[in-house]
């Protein structure tokens, strides 16, 4: 197994420490100036230990990759606008199908090409597709340098890979690509 670089350990530890601050509620106490030193030190020690042991599972490439203003901005835009919009649209669609007396479903598994690079981007797009009701990513393969998703789709409108990709991924793919592009 690959060894974790110091920057990977540092970024994992920082992330863990932020989570600790939020979960214990200390982040509010810091602003009020009444943080308990004991809790902070315990959190720091535990997060450094967690970083040492888990950084190699967690971070494989450059550790502070997302810490670029442009990339971070597109991540925020994706999380707060692009993704919720698709989510609400798909949710209303599936809720309508479930409540419709005729139950208009036409399920099938389609194969869809995806133009995203790197395992983080692939995982993020697959998770976004799964989280959208109506589509679940079943598997992912690579053929001739191209990535394909197998997607279970509740209403197969077309079996043509490109068109199905347009219908399923919508604006998600462009958003993901903007975050993880080099």
């Amino acid at each position: 197994m690959k060894k974790a670089s110091p920057s990977a350990i540092a970024s994992t530890a920082i992330l863990c420490f932020l989570f600790w601050l939020m979960i214990t509620g200390q982040i509010v106490s810091i602003f009020k100036g009444e943080a308990s030193a004991q809790v902070l030190i315990a959190g720091a020690v535990v997060s450094i230990l967690a970083g040492l042991f888990s950084a190699r599972f967690f971070i494989h490439e450059k550790a502070f990759f997302l810490w670029d203003p442009k990339r971070f901005a597109s991540l925020i835009v994706y999380c707060c606008w692009t993704f919720p919009r698709e989510l609400v649209k798909a949710n209303i669609d599936v809720a309508k199908r479930a409540l419709d007396p005729d139950l208009p479903v036409n399920p099938g598994i389609v194969k869809v090409p995806a133009n995203v690079k790197g395992s983080y981007a692939q995982a993020m797009l697959a998770d976004s597709i799964t989280l959208t009701p109506g589509t679940i990513t079943m598997d992912i393969t690579e053929e001739d340098d191209k990535t394909y998703y197998y997607i279970h789709w509740i209403d197969v409108a077309t079996q043509e890979p490109e068109e199905a990709g347009e219908a399923i991924k919508g604006t998600l793919e462009a958003g993901v690509r903007k975050i993880w592009e080099d």
Binding site: V88, A98, V105
Partner: peptide, 29 residues
Amino acid sequence: FFAFAGVVGMLRMPDVFCRMQSSTNIATL
């Protein structure tokens, strides 16, 4: 409302995979 629609969908959908689809409805919104 969405959780209700998801539960109704889970009971009515014809097979496992479609039920999973409906359950993501509850899971998200």
